[in-house]
């Protein structure tokens, strides 16, 4: 009976509370803080624009991606071709819309590989102190190479190409995940509730899965957002150097590389793909900064 009374009292209290004073879950608080952050909203809007344009390319693009018309070569931005045409008379806007798929995919694959491997190694390193020194020493060795150099060295081994460029970028990003996750796990494993579940005889696997991983989610989300942009930038730079996506693939870095040869006559060929890379990376950076402030306001 007393239980019922308590519940109804609580319900009554919450029910009569004004909307703003109601207890909020962690994620709804994060969402509220994020909505108030102008930079994050602008960043998300930029990304949404590029995602819609890339995913919807087959429907939205004004011309077929590979349509060549020699009479249309090097047309400057105009009403017919908003972003101009290239040396084969192909519409730059249409190619950029398809190219966005490649560039965004490069970022997604690189961040996913790095995230999965990095989180795994970071958790192991932070939780099992005996393995920590070995894993961190390996990470220190990877960090001894400036990231672009590491990616170039990996491509020198694996060979030139889109897939290898993604793997190379992913490997160069892994150490930053390991460091962030390890740091978080190190502080978590000292917490009393982890000690308590350990004392109850819960297995390490369950502790990691149920109590550690959910708590590393916030820093990993922030890092992934920021690294997404960095990875796209690195992958585009590799393509520009001729080490990633190869022309005629409509990847933004590769398109800018081709445009470099026609800079004087057709500046739009490299200007717009480069601008797209900058805007997407800017979008990820703005959203990442906003997410960091929303997930951990102490860092602001």
């Amino acid at each position: 009976m007393s239980q019922v009374v308590t519940e109804s009292k609580t319900e009554g209290l919450v029910g009569n509370m004004p909307e703003a004073a109601k207890p909020k879950s962690y994620w709804s608080l994060v969402w509220r803080r994020l909505k108030r952050n102008k930079g994050a909203i602008i960043g998300a809007a930029i990304l949404l624009f590029f995602i819609i344009a890339s995913v919807g390319a087959p429907i939205l693009s004004p011309y077929p991606m590979e349509e060549m018309k020699m009479e249309n070569r090097f047309i400057a931005p105009s009403a017919d071709h908003w972003l101009g045409t290239d040396e084969f008379g192909r519409d730059i806007l249409s190619r950029m819309m398809y190219g966005g798929r490649v560039s965004l995919m490069m970022g997604l694959v690189a961040v996913s590989i790095a995230g999965i491997v990095g989180v795994f190694l970071g958790v192991i390193s932070g939780y099992y102190r005996k393995l920590d020194i070995y894993i961190m020493q390996c990470m220190d060795i990877l960090l001894a190479f400036p990231s672009l150099l590491l990616a170039i060295a990996i491509i020198a081994v694996l060979g030139v190409g889109l897939t290898n460029a993604m793997i190379a970028v992913a490997i160069s990003v892994i150490p930053s995940y390991v460091r962030v996750v390890r740091g978080t796990v190190l502080s978590l494993r000292e917490k009393e509730y982890i000690e308590a579940v350990k004392a109850l005889g819960v297995s390490d696997f369950k502790i990691i899965l149920k109590h550690i991983l959910p708590n590393v989610l916030s820093p990993v989300i922030v890092l992934s957002t920021l690294q997404f942009g960095t990875s796209i930038l690195a992958a585009a730079s590799l393509s520009f150097l001729g080490l990633g996506a190869q022309p005629p693939a409509p990847e933004w870095g590769a398109m800018a590389y081709v445009g470099k040869s026609f800079l004087l006559n057709a500046w739009w060929m490299s200007l717009f793909p480069g601008l797209a890379i900058m805007l997407v990376v800017l979008g990820f950076n703005m959203l990442g900064d906003g997410l960091r402030d929303a997930l951990d306001p102490r860092l602001k």
Partner: peptide, 22 residues
């Protein structure tokens, strides 16, 4: 500063070449 971080190096380079060399 955010634009400086986000812009690809090769793009800034091409832009500068176009304006200050061409």
């Amino acid at each position: 500063s955010l634009i400086g971080i986000s812009a690809p190096g090769f793009w800034i380079a091409l832009f500068l070449i176009f304006v200050f060399a061409y």
